[in-house]
Design a protein around this nucleic acid. Structure first.
Length: 99
DNA sequence: AAAGTGACGGTCT
DNA sequence: AAGACCGCCACTT
């Protein structure tokens, strides 16, 4: 378990319900600015049954970056928290939900 | 060893 | 406002 993953998990675990954070911001808060892509790679390795709120991570444009099946799962989770997501993954007024 | 590949992002058109 | 471009970095081929 790398130091990066460790802090990533900690920060994510403390992200409140209904709040969002971007890959880039998450990377920066971990102390690794410019490592947005690595955040994605790391999240992709999470077990399917993880309790971490991986679905609260979106890209800098307030859109879901996942595709296909995973896209639908994330969309459902977010909607379950009261957010509205269009068919392209764009979250309405996402700036209001940023942590 | 070199090239390709992402759950990305900032800049410049 | 949207798309092209390029930088980024850990992995995989």
């Amino acid at each position: 378990m790398t130091e990066f993953e460790q802090s990533l998990y900690n920060i994510l675990a403390s992200l409140p319900k209904g709040k969002l954070i971007s890959y880039g911001q998450l990377a920066k808060q971990c102390g690794y600015p410019n490592h947005a892509r690595h955040v994605g790679k790391t999240l992709a390795k999470l077990p399917k049954d993880t309790r971490l709120p991986w679905f609260r991570v979106v890209n800098s444009q307030g859109k879901i970056s996942l595709v296909g099946d995973a896209f639908l799962r994330q969309k459902a989770y977010l909607e379950a928290e009261g957010l509205s997501v269009n068919e392209f993954g764009k979250i309405s007024h996402y700036r209001d939900y940023l942590a």
